Computed example of a mutant assay.
Amino acid sequence: MRSSRRCPLLVSVLLCAFALLAARPAEESRRSPEDGRGDVGVGTEVAQLYEDAAVATQQYEEGWREARVQRARARRLEGLLDRERREIVVLREDLGRLARAQYRTGGDLPLTARMILADDPEKLMEREHAVRKADLVVDNAIDKSRRAEIRLAADEARAAAAWQDLEKRNAELAKLKKSIEQKLEEARWRLQGQANASAMAGICRGAVRLDQPKLSFTRDWVAPVEKYVLSAGFGTGGARWANRHTGQDFAVPIGTPVRAVGEGRVVRVSCGGAFGIEIVVEHRGGYYTQYAHLASVAVDQGDRVLPGQWVGQSGDTGNSTGPHLHFEVRVAPELGSGVDPVPWLAARGVNL
C-alpha cells in the first residue's frame, strides 16, 4: 500500500521536472541584457576594425601626400641641376673664346716680346689686364657652378631616395589597408547575420559596450554618423512605406558607429518589426530621436547619453533596402509624430 501511494507523488515530481526542462530553452531565448556574448565579440571587432581602417586610410593618404612633395622636390632639384650644368657649358665656351682671342692677338708670344712689337704698349697692357681679369672671372664662375652642381646632385639623390622609401612604405600601407578592409567586410557580415537572427526572433541581445571615442565636441548637437551619403529624405514616397518616408536615411556601411545627436536618455531599445533593431532617445525640449535598422546597440534602456556618444552600429535589419541608418526626429516616442530631421538639425547648428 505504501509503494502505491508513492507513485502519484513520483509521477508529479517527474512531470514538474519535464515541464521545467521544456520551458528552459524558451526562457533562455528571451533573455536579453547579459546574453549577447557572441554579439559583443563581433560588434567590438567591427568597431575596432572600423577604427583601424580609418587610421590606415589616414596614414596611407598622408604617406602619398608626403611622397608627392618629395617627388616634386626631387624634380625641382633635377631641374636646377640641369640649369647649373648648362651654365657650366656656357662658361667653358666663354673661356674658350678668351683663349682663342689671346691666341689671335699674339697670345703664343711672351708678354715682353709682344710689348716690343706693339705699336702702343700701354694699350696692349690694358687689353692683357682685361683678358686676364675676364679669364679669372670665368674660372671663378666655373668653380662656383661646379660646387653648386655637386651640392644639387647630393640634394637630388637624397630627395630621390626619400621619395623611393616613401613609395615603398606606401605600398606596404596599401597592403595593410586592404587586409584590414577585407577583415572588416567579413566581420560586418557576421555581425549582420547575428543581427538578422535577433531581429527575426524579436529578441534584443543587450548592449555591446563599445570602446567609446574621446568626446571632444564643443557643440550640443552633432550628426548621427560621421561620414555618410544622404539617401531617402523626409516625406518622400516609395513602395516600402505605407504613406511617406518618416525620417532621413544615411547610406553607410554595416557596422558604422551611430552617434547620439545630443544629450538625452534612452527610452526604447527594441528588435523586430519594420525598423529592425532600433533605439529611441529622449532629449530636452520634448523631442525624441530614433536610430533604426541597426546591427547592434551599445546602450540599454534608461542609459544617459552625451552628444557624439556611440549608441549602436548601423546595419540592414527590418524593412530595409540596404545598409543604412534610418534617423527620425519626433515630438513623441511613437511613430507618426515625426518632423523633418534636416531643418531640425540645421536649427541646432548641424548642416547635413
Score class of each variant (00 low, 15 high):
residue 63 G to L: 01
residue 34 E to P: 00
residue 25 P to I: 06
residue 39 D to A: 10
residue 66 E to T: 07
residue 62 E to C: 01
residue 38 G to D: 15
residue 20 L to H: 09
residue 63 G to S: 07
residue 38 G to V: 12
residue 26 A to H: 12
residue 53 A to Q: 01
residue 27 E to Y: 14
residue 34 E to K: 10
residue 22 A to D: 11
residue 51 E to H: 10
residue 62 E to S: 13
residue 60 Y to F: 09
residue 40 V to L: 06
residue 50 Y to R: 06
residue 29 S to C: 07
residue 61 E to T: 11
residue 61 E to P: 03
residue 24 R to N: 08
residue 41 G to T: 10
residue 30 R to M: 12
residue 36 G to P: 07
residue 67 A to T: 06
residue 40 V to C: 11
residue 36 G to F: 05
residue 64 W to H: 13
residue 63 G to N: 06
residue 49 L to P: 04
residue 53 A to G: 05
residue 58 Q to P: 03
residue 64 W to A: 09
residue 35 D to E: 15
residue 42 V to A: 04
residue 43 G to N: 00
residue 55 V to T: 07
residue 47 A to M: 01
residue 43 G to V: 00
residue 38 G to C: 06
residue 24 R to L: 10
residue 38 G to F: 11
residue 39 D to C: 11
residue 26 A to P: 02
residue 20 L to Y: 12
residue 19 A to Y: 13
residue 44 T to K: 03
residue 35 D to F: 12
residue 55 V to I: 15
residue 53 A to C: 07
residue 49 L to I: 08
residue 66 E to W: 08
residue 46 V to C: 04
residue 59 Q to R: 04
residue 40 V to H: 03
residue 61 E to L: 09
residue 43 G to C: 01
residue 37 R to T: 10
residue 21 L to Y: 14
residue 53 A to R: 05
residue 28 E to A: 13
residue 41 G to F: 12
residue 40 V to D: 04
residue 47 A to L: 01
residue 25 P to G: 06
residue 19 A to L: 15
residue 19 A to W: 14
residue 29 S to V: 08
residue 30 R to E: 12
residue 51 E to I: 02
residue 30 R to L: 13
residue 40 V to E: 02
residue 39 D to R: 03
residue 66 E to S: 14
residue 20 L to V: 07
residue 18 F to E: 09
residue 34 E to Q: 13
residue 22 A to S: 09
residue 39 D to V: 11
residue 37 R to I: 05
residue 43 G to Q: 05
residue 31 R to W: 00
residue 21 L to F: 15
residue 23 A to H: 02
residue 25 P to W: 02
residue 25 P to V: 04
residue 44 T to Q: 09
residue 61 E to Y: 07
residue 27 E to A: 13
residue 28 E to M: 08
residue 58 Q to M: 06
residue 27 E to D: 12
residue 48 Q to G: 04
residue 60 Y to A: 04
residue 49 L to N: 03
residue 36 G to S: 10
residue 38 G to I: 10
residue 25 P to A: 06
residue 46 V to S: 00
residue 57 T to H: 00
residue 50 Y to I: 00
residue 48 Q to Y: 00
residue 47 A to S: 01
residue 34 E to W: 14
residue 26 A to I: 11
residue 33 P to W: 12
residue 43 G to D: 05
residue 44 T to F: 03
residue 60 Y to V: 02
residue 36 G to Y: 02
residue 49 L to T: 00
residue 32 S to E: 15
residue 62 E to T: 11
residue 42 V to M: 08
residue 51 E to M: 10
residue 62 E to F: 03
residue 46 V to M: 00
residue 36 G to L: 00
residue 55 V to A: 06
residue 56 A to Y: 04
